[in-house]
Design a protein around this nucleic acid. Structure first.
Lengths: 212, 212, 212, 212
DNA sequence: TATGAATGAGTCTTCATTCAT
DNA sequence: AATGAATGAAGACTCATTCAT
């Protein structure tokens, strides 16, 4: 039994090791431009060894995606808790997403890449189903929070709850994604405010737009 | 001279022809999954001929991107004109982008794809430079419109003009992109309102948030 | 039009060229142990070129199988004609198969290999269907010939026509296949008669067994 | 000494155990499509352990072939004994082979596979030599039985003893092999007689052909 | 101007075998 | 005696690009 746990532990560690190396390369070069060969080389491992721990390149990548999704989920759930009013909870949700992007730019990029191709993925794969459910879950949370916000008087009443919850989520992800794409560009512009402030301003503006 | 023009005309026409065919295939199958072979086959042309008019697969694709950018630019400029107040002009700008997405889903997809990979592109390529300039241009237009809106009393005053102009553009592109990614998903959800309404609601909500 | 024919001709010739080289290697080393790389090397061609003419290794191999089947079919049909009585026609059929084996040992080996794996093949592939039909066809021809033989008095009457026709075909193919497998072995045995006579003796014995 | 025997016994048992598992998988999936990994997994053993008992995948497979050959040999020897006349002995020999095929389809498939590739094998391997000797042995037995049959009046005299003995063996193995290959195919044909009867008819027809 | 045959580097993946523990 | 992680060569196949005609 102890032995068994010991081995499982070792396997997990090795997986971590491989994922750590893959994370860097996938992040730097993108999924398509990363070859299993290169990952193995970086690890000073034989190519075949990778396949001992991950059944395919996709499997290795998705493991990273899944890790990212878990981190994101935790951050959101945590940050919702730490706020009182419905409005604050919603704002914290947005802030959590931005924090995820800032603290884990690599995982963030995997999650985005994954979301971009979800449509083409096999709908039978557990990971795909899982993430579909997570999307729906977040949507439901948002809806509840808005209801709560209206109830506790922190949010204006003249909004369509269904639509605004959907919109807020699209918008938050969208703003961050676009910011990531264009940040280099913006960094060269106005020197008076750092481009990175734009995301904080997004939250600030959302607050203004939602509050009673 | 006349001869010269005639030839140039012919070359342009041929380029159009090729781009038309490429547009369909790139849209259907994506850039990576489209081979030059397939484009040539569809045109009943030799593969080599394509390289007479476009120096590479990338070049061909970027020409489509550029075409798309021009269309988008025109739509925006037109739609700005047709409004009076600063607020309405800004809303029309957003509407124009959404219209572009709806009417030219193919060009839209190219522009997005291009934006997503701009980071990896050679910063010396004219198209990249071009797009940098266009971004700046739009930022400047937005800034002016907001100033005008504040001036004519259609827009609230308690906003940071620099930041909001940057944000609005990121946000609009982001919302549309995220909507495109998730629309299939959302179509299965609430049957009461069609998912496609979300984009119109986005404009509606933007109006609420900006107006005095 | 002339141009078109010319090109088609050239393609056919190239295909022949490739098939000729592949034939030798497949025969020497067997399908599994032959790599596309090796075939290309032998032809002093790039690997990719092979795929210009054959869509896959299987396709290349099956083209050889099909060529073999056509040769065999012709030989059988020809040799049946040149005999009068039912019995002689049947014996000639067997002789034709043996002749095929002797004159085209390479094609013979492909046909055998193919037959051995037919069961595992995709039943939707035209080549598979085709060969199934050919089997049935041969069975029908045999049945007719036996009827004719009984009718013209060249074949004994106390046999089950359905069974004997099936059996004769299995037996002929089987004897040749087993002979091929064991000939090296047998060549070292009795020096008085060359092992190769065994196939002729098979026909001789079949005659004795069938005739009235 | 006692200890030594005990250990040897244990090794033999372990070998049996492994062979039993391998037998099933080799039969289901074929030699090439079976990996040592899979065999080890089925046995809940480590891959390396297999190599403690068998020096290679080939060695493991050949052990099964050898086992099959021993079973076949016994069946033949037994069934020869239980007949009186030379003809009946020969017919029983054929029947024994068919019985082997029917009762041990797995071992049968290994023996056939082995025979098919014997040509490519190292002529120094004991198993190959062994099989060469066995072939000669069977040839000799058949020769004796035919002589006996002629002597006791059960077999016709107008045959070449050397040739017929060689032929009968080739023919029997060949018919069974071809039947095995095509049985699925034939099962769909004539509904009046089950395809499986063909092997019995083969013996029946052999009897007719050989008897005085 | 147009052709399209040829290239060949590069991709993911498999698996028998070894060897340190 | 038993393990199972690691190896690495080998395989089929793709495709943007070139170049002789």
């Amino acid at each position: 039994m102890a032995r068994h746990n010991y081995d499982e532990e070792k396997i997990k560690e090795k997986k971590k090791l491989i994922m750590e190396a893959a994370k860097k390369i996938f992040y730097e070069k993108g999924y398509e431009n990363t070859s299993m060969n290169e990952i193995a080389r970086k690890l000073k491992m034989a190519k075949g060894t990778l396949y001992l721990y991950f059944s395919s390149k996709k499997d290795l990548f998705f493991s990273l995606v899944y890790e990212g999704l878990k981190i994101l989920e935790n951050m959101i759930k945590n940050d919702i808790k730490s706020a009182k009013s419905g409005l604050d909870k919603i704002l914290n949700m947005g802030r959590a997403y931005i924090k995820f992007y800032r603290e884990y730019p690599d995982y963030y990029s995997f999650v985005i890449k994954y979301e971009s191709e979800k449509a083409d993925l096999d709908t039978n794969e557990p990971l795909v189903i899982n993430s579909y459910e997570k999307s729906e879950e977040i949507y439901d949370i948002l809806k509840l929070l808005i209801l709560k916000g209206i109830d506790d008087g922190s949010i204006r009443e003249d909004i369509d709850i269904n639509k605004i919850s959907m919109l807020l989520w699209l918008q938050t992800i969208g703003v961050v994604q676009q910011f990531e794409l264009r940040k280099k560009l913006y960094e060269n512009w106005d020197e008076k405010f750092p481009a990175s402030e734009i995301l904080d301003y997004y939250i600030h503006f959302m607050k203004k737009s939602l509050k009673k």
